Simulated scan of single mutants.
Amino acid sequence: MDSEIDPAVLRFVAAQLRRSNLTGIQAVRHVEERVGRTPLTVACDIAIFDLLGKQLDQPARVLFGECVSVPRTAVTIGVTKQEDLIELVAQYREWPILKLKLRRGQSVTGLEVVRRIYDGEIWVDVNGGWDLETTKASMPILRGIGVAILEQPLPQNRSHELHELRGGPVQIMVDEDVTGPQSIARLAGVVDVVNVKLAACGGLSGASETILAAQQVGLKAMIGCRSESVASVTAAATLCHLADFADLDGHLDVADDPFEGISIDRGHIRLTDRSGIGAAPIHR
């Protein structure tokens, strides 16, 4: 899809944003049908909910039901050398959940040392770097060190092969396979958890519908994010009370972030009471 958007489409979207109501959200979806899902259409969807919350003088999360509690978030340690891994795990020892990323072909045996110095919950994200046989061979080690979630072991569109791994102590989660509520049906009975991201699912409206669709077919849902500004992560946190898990640390390594929003204290998500999605520009 060409990244350049027709100026007429931009004017059309701007007009819908000024309306800032549910009809506007449907209009953004109409634009999606014309130009495809883009950062623009996702941002417009989020902006409408931001405006709706501000019109009500309420956090936008109230539009998605009562917020009774929120899950704790994981902190991610990217692909790194073994000696650096030990140092980073020690740094995050007080966090309740560590998410460890592995590069293609990397063995899980090196993770055994993590369990010796970390008592919390461990998730492993392979980013589609394994085949089915490698995944099967790795499961005993993952079980042995108490890994709770294995994320995207196979490449996108091959998750149907994972059904035989379900039912054990290691929950199977997919990420890239989750592109909106329409993607959920083929994952039912195949995996345990779906990672729902606003950017992939079409903003707050699409992500909330994806979480609901997942839970209706017996899947658990994680609200996730990419490496992005706290403005985007705060928007995702609007839905965290709907989700079973959260992975909302994508802003922690962003330098000179021009926004402020949620804060995280060793895994505990501190939501804001601002109206709208809760993010605000920092005036320097």
Rank of each mutant, 00 (worst) to 15 (best):
V35W: 04
V89L: 07
K99C: 13
T234K: 08
G120F: 05
I97G: 04
T179H: 08
I145W: 02
K220P: 03
L154Y: 09
I262C: 06
V31I: 15
E260K: 10
M173V: 04
G120P: 05
G202Y: 04
H251P: 00
Q16P: 00
V28L: 08
L100P: 04
Q91M: 08
T210R: 01
A199E: 10
V31L: 05
R72P: 04
R19W: 13
I97Y: 08
P155D: 07
F259C: 01
V147C: 11
L239Y: 08
L162W: 13
R19Y: 12
R19H: 13
G267T: 11
I145R: 05
Q106E: 15
L219F: 03
H251G: 02
R11E: 05
Q26N: 06
W130G: 01
H241R: 10
G129C: 04
A148F: 14
V230L: 03
S3H: 14
A74F: 12
S263K: 12
R226A: 09
G206Y: 01
H268G: 00
A221S: 09
L248Q: 05
S20A: 15
N127C: 00
E164M: 14
Y92H: 11
G278I: 13
N195H: 08
I172V: 10
G24F: 13
T41Y: 10
T38H: 14
Q58W: 01
G206M: 01
L248F: 11
L154R: 06
V230W: 05
Q156W: 11
G206R: 00
R29H: 14
P281E: 12
T179L: 13
V217R: 02
L165S: 06
F12T: 02
V124P: 00
P281D: 07
D253R: 14
V62P: 00
F49S: 05
P39N: 10
S263C: 04
R61Y: 14
L271D: 13
A60K: 07
C44S: 15
S138G: 01
V178S: 02
K54W: 08
A255S: 11
A8W: 03
V75Q: 08
T41H: 10
E176D: 14
V190D: 02
R274Q: 09
T210H: 01
P258T: 12
P39S: 10
V190I: 14
Q106N: 05
L219P: 01
D257R: 04
V75I: 15
L111M: 12
L154P: 06
V233D: 04
R226D: 06
K220A: 10
L40A: 09
S232M: 15
D247E: 10
